[in-house]
Design a binder for these strands. Sequence first.
DNA 1: TAATTATATAAGCATATAATTATATGCTCA
DNA 2: TGAGCATATAATTATATGCTTATATAATTA
Lengths: 115, 115
Amino acid sequence: MEKTIMAIEQVAGVLKLFGDKTRLAMISLLAHNECCVCEFVEIFQMSQPAISQHLRKLKDSGLVKERRSGQWMFFSLNKENEAYPLIRSLLPHVPDQKERLEALEAEGLRMSCCD
Amino acid sequence: MEKTIMAIEQVAGVLKLFGDKTRLAMISLLAHNECCVCEFVEIFQMSQPAISQHLRKLKDSGLVKERRSGQWMFFSLNKENEAYPLIRSLLPHVPDQKERLEALEAEGLRMSCCD
DNA sequence: TAATTATATAAGCATATAATTATATGCTCA
DNA sequence: TGAGCATATAATTATATGCTTATATAATTA
């Protein structure tokens, strides 16, 4: 597992970014799945603007990238980012969030809200 | 390197705690040294109350313990804490702070402010 | 082209955070 | 015991954060 060479301010910035349980769960989900805004709205039961604002912070950090597909925006991890190795070190300590995605699928929402 | 079994809220709480560059540098120093308040005041060039307040947050988290020796309070990492493995995963990504301690020693302050 | 859907942005508000200043506590030593 | 030093706490203030509501933008479909 590679090591980062970031200034301490940068490291603190990344930790602050994930010192929020919504964004922490988001990055955990994005580690293994590409997700769209509407899925996050369902999973976290939060308003669409609140979700968009969290995603913007993630995007601004460069750790997450977005891809438009029609009217949907899909988000995924940017493994090229210099803080990615730090994220990799963090993720094993975050409880798996995939059940939340699976719950969506079970409800038939995962592939219905945006496809 | 052991894995933590913390709730996501707890993990986010720890990351928020270290999403501050002063506390992040503190924990990095404490990983290898026992330090007293006056040393931190010198190293970070911050007011004593500001330093005490940061140390209190670290202590409240359980990740740092204190030991009184005369009029001085010495702080060190509490390796028994359940979040310690997370800290261990984080620390390799934090630039080494030991030069700051060495600078103190060079000035003859490390062993003069509290001994 | 108008209505609809998905998402983004802006403004406002309540709460949290980190510093400062002032004061309190606790230990040491004359 | 009282002065002095190290540290802690409290009150205050300035700024940051995260949410809400309202509105804007962009793509889709009728």
